[in-house]
Amino acid sequence: MSILSTRKADKIDSLAEGGTSLAMDALRRTFRSPVAILGLVIVGLFVILAIISPFVAPKDPYRPYPELKAELTPSNIPGPMPGFLLGSDQNGYDFFSRLLVGAQQTLFVGVFATLIGVTIGMIIGGLAGAFGGWVDSLLMRLTDIMLSIPSLLLAISIAALMPGSQWTVIIAVAMIGVPVFARLLRGAMMAQRSSDHVLAATALGVKRRTIVFRHMLPNSIGPVIVQATLTLATAIIDAAALSFLGLGDSDWRRAEWGLMLGNAQELLSVKPSLAFFPAIAIIVVALGFTLLGESMRESLDPKNRR
């Protein structure tokens, strides 16, 4: 009897455990893969750097230093010297400090461009998915038009039409993401619309609005979050591209990697590291977000559950 009762007690105990939501479960699965961890480490370091860089930068990134200026000529930009780890930039500023602080500005552009893109995209996709019918048709044709324009061309057109400021870059880049997010959310919500649990809620007499916000939206948001992570990577690159083309921020003093890279293009023969370091920084960060996004996508895929 003893074995029987303890075994049975075990069974009952195992029943009492649990209570893990699906999101937690997915998160746990995500970080079982080394790729995800690498992505997370890169992104984490980048975010930490962005936060602390103004405090740890050895020099003021927004002020020329006479020591550097003294040796600055059109054909010579000073390299590393005591106190200045990577030497000067083309304006006699401390290049290393600017590179550090650049993380903050770059993150700012990337995050806001993505956030704006996600917000507008989700409003469009959410409306289309929640209402369906002609609302859906109208909004989706609209996004089709946006999608039919090559993304960079779209951003360039917007940037060209607006005064050159940081927000111009952000908005131009955000617009690239809008149709993508709209379609994604709309598609996921359409799938939810015909799902059994939404039908069950309807049959229960739950209000339409509650169904949309409690059931359809939360169950559709996963792919959007993944896409947002991936978009952060491309947003940073796109912003850099705009800056590179001279359509970016007109404030040349701002320490932002894309802008730094853009402004260094004529100086490649004089001091290639001025372009090299921002470029590498952008690539690594973009890679970090991509790795993270891809592994999240993988673990959210129901086919890969368990």
């Binding site: 074995i3 029987l4 075994r7």
Partner: peptide, 12 residues
């Protein structure tokens, strides 16, 4: 665990 005839020996 599901058997109506189960006795101690079945569990061990």
């Amino acid at each position: 665990p599901r058997c109506p005839n189960a006795t101690d020996v079945c569990w061990s």
